[in-house]
Amino acid sequence: MKIDPNKSIFIQLADYIRFDIYSGKRKPNSRLESIRDMAIILEVNPNTIKRVYQVLEEEGLIYCHSTLGYFVCPSEEVIQKNKQKYISDRLKEFLTLLNNCNITKAEITKIIGELYGDN
């Protein structure tokens, strides 16, 4: 993972792990690296990793086993729900941006079509 020094490391790390889970790179019930190992791999402050794990745990995306550490949520259903919420939240932000630019739905559909490589 490449960390952008100009952006919040906390947000970047949370998204990094989130995307790994959403995309299926990290499977349900698979074990996450310990806080220290993750800190060493990414060369960031262990406190930041701890905060990221705590937030993801609150969201239900990962859970903490008292002795074995952190694991990805076992339920595919919960992961999918979480993913949809994340995507719709991001899209809402994006819609606000589009509204501010005064772009119509037809125009944006066209742009998205072009980006996807449709004719």
Binding site: P5, N6, K7, S8, I9, I11, V44, N45
Partner: peptide, 30 residues
């Protein structure tokens, strides 16, 4: 990346203590 805070000595009268992640997220600067 490793530091959680930075102590910035601005002069003989001020040492500012800032959260590094707050700097990055509020002003988008390293």
């Amino acid at each position: 990346k490793l530091a959680s805070y930075c102590l910035l000595i601005k002069g003989y009268k001020t040492i500012e203590c800032l959260s590094t992640d707050e700097i990055r997220s509020t002003v988008s600067l390293s």
